[in-house]
Lab assay of single mutants.
Amino acid sequence: GKMTGIVKWFNADKGFGFITPDDGSKDVFVHFSAIQNDGYKSLDEGQKVSFTIESGAKGPAAGNVTSL
């Protein structure tokens, strides 16, 4: 299901970062391709987001990332 969290950091040049889930679980990798907006796909440190957990090739990653 949907989770919420805070963006820990995001490197716009490399197109990835990490989200710290509100439930205290392990930080989740986020790739820019998972960001659900029409414009420039980037996130800001400290931004609140909702997301799902998808299993990627390198382990769990955030999917369906939407800013709240």
Rank of each mutant, 00 (worst) to 15 (best):
residue 9 W to D: 02
residue 33 S to T: 15
residue 38 D to R: 03
residue 2 K to M: 12
residue 58 K to M: 12
residue 26 K to V: 12
residue 56 G to W: 09
residue 30 V to H: 00
residue 14 K to A: 15
residue 19 I to Y: 00
residue 29 F to I: 04
residue 46 G to S: 06
residue 50 S to C: 05
residue 19 I to V: 05
residue 9 W to P: 00
residue 11 N to H: 11
residue 32 F to S: 11
residue 49 V to W: 01
residue 22 D to T: 11
residue 11 N to A: 11
residue 61 A to G: 06
residue 8 K to P: 01
residue 67 S to C: 05
residue 39 G to K: 11
residue 16 F to R: 02
residue 13 D to A: 13
residue 44 D to I: 12
residue 27 D to F: 03
residue 10 F to D: 00
residue 55 S to W: 13
residue 38 D to P: 13
residue 41 K to R: 13
residue 51 F to I: 02
residue 42 S to F: 14
residue 27 D to V: 06
residue 47 Q to F: 06
residue 1 G to P: 13
residue 41 K to F: 08
residue 12 A to S: 14
residue 54 E to T: 13
residue 25 S to K: 08
residue 1 G to S: 10
residue 42 S to V: 10
residue 62 A to E: 01
residue 29 F to P: 03
residue 6 I to W: 11
residue 46 G to E: 03
residue 50 S to E: 11
residue 31 H to E: 03
residue 12 A to F: 12
residue 66 T to S: 10
residue 63 G to C: 05
residue 62 A to N: 01
residue 8 K to H: 09
residue 32 F to G: 05
residue 54 E to M: 15
residue 56 G to E: 09
residue 15 G to Q: 04
residue 34 A to I: 03
residue 20 T to P: 01
residue 32 F to D: 03
residue 10 F to R: 01
residue 47 Q to A: 13
residue 48 K to W: 11
residue 29 F to K: 02
residue 22 D to H: 10
residue 68 L to I: 11
residue 12 A to Q: 12
residue 9 W to M: 04
residue 4 T to D: 05
residue 53 I to P: 05
residue 37 N to S: 09
residue 35 I to S: 03
residue 58 K to T: 15
residue 24 G to P: 03
residue 3 M to R: 11
residue 25 S to F: 08
residue 66 T to Y: 09
residue 34 A to L: 03
residue 33 S to K: 10
residue 24 G to I: 04
residue 68 L to P: 07
residue 34 A to M: 06
residue 45 E to W: 15
residue 51 F to K: 00
residue 47 Q to D: 09
residue 32 F to Q: 11
residue 30 V to K: 00
residue 39 G to E: 13
residue 37 N to I: 14
residue 19 I to A: 01
residue 37 N to W: 10
residue 27 D to Y: 04
residue 57 A to W: 13
residue 17 G to F: 01
residue 10 F to L: 02
residue 57 A to E: 09
residue 35 I to R: 01
residue 12 A to I: 15
residue 23 D to C: 05
residue 64 N to L: 10
residue 18 F to L: 04
residue 43 L to C: 02
residue 37 N to G: 13
residue 49 V to S: 00
residue 21 P to F: 05
residue 54 E to A: 09
residue 52 T to D: 11
residue 23 D to W: 06
residue 35 I to L: 07
residue 67 S to N: 12
residue 32 F to I: 15
residue 67 S to M: 13
residue 5 G to F: 01
residue 54 E to R: 07
residue 32 F to N: 06
residue 18 F to Q: 03
residue 1 G to C: 05
residue 55 S to R: 15
residue 27 D to W: 04
residue 47 Q to K: 08
residue 12 A to N: 14
residue 7 V to I: 08
residue 60 P to T: 08
residue 43 L to G: 01
residue 3 M to I: 13
residue 13 D to V: 11
residue 19 I to F: 02
residue 52 T to K: 07
residue 19 I to R: 00
residue 12 A to H: 12
residue 33 S to P: 03
residue 41 K to W: 08
residue 28 V to G: 00
residue 14 K to H: 11
residue 64 N to W: 08
residue 66 T to M: 12
residue 38 D to I: 09
residue 17 G to A: 01
residue 34 A to S: 12
residue 45 E to N: 11
residue 36 Q to P: 06
residue 41 K to P: 08
residue 42 S to L: 10
residue 52 T to P: 01
residue 64 N to C: 05
residue 47 Q to L: 07
residue 45 E to K: 13
residue 21 P to D: 02
residue 58 K to A: 13
residue 49 V to G: 00
residue 61 A to S: 06
residue 21 P to S: 05
residue 65 V to Q: 01
residue 35 I to P: 02
residue 51 F to R: 00
residue 16 F to N: 02
residue 29 F to Q: 02
residue 23 D to Y: 08
residue 20 T to D: 03
